[in-house]
């Protein structure tokens, strides 16, 4: 596979390390009264679609960026690649 890095262009998948479902960005608030449930769902009940999947990849042998890659798990077609930091900021995770 090739991941089209938003800053570096197309790069072989062997430069990357996979983590999984991009919703791992959305770490729950531990102060919430249902924190235990939220953390359980956050960590264990991940998206696993047969189709478009937003997922986290780390460019370990590249620029060390975490990326959010939108990839179809049936065809492996990649339609979008973003810097995870931007995604996280857009999701309001600025502290």
């Amino acid at each position: 596979m090739i991941i089209d890095h938003p800053l570096l262009g197309p790069r072989d998948v062997s430069e990357f390390v996979y983590l999984g479902d991009a919703s791992l960005i959305n770490r729950p608030d531990s102060q919430n009264e249902n924190a235990a449930k939220h953390f359980y769902e956050y960590l264990y009940l991940r998206e696993n679609p047969a189709g478009e999947h937003r997922e986290l990849w780390y460019h370990e042998h590249g620029d060390r960026s975490w990326l959010v890659v939108t990839r179809d798990t049936l065809t492996h077609k990649i339609t979008r690649v973003e810097l995870a930091r931007d995604t996280a900021l857009a999701a309001g995770r600025n502290k």
Partner: peptide, 13 residues
């Protein structure tokens, strides 16, 4: 291979 997939095929690495 290490990534989610239903494609029933792998890659070279």
């Amino acid at each position: 291979d290490g990534y989610n997939s239903y494609a029933q095929r792998g890659n070279l690495p």
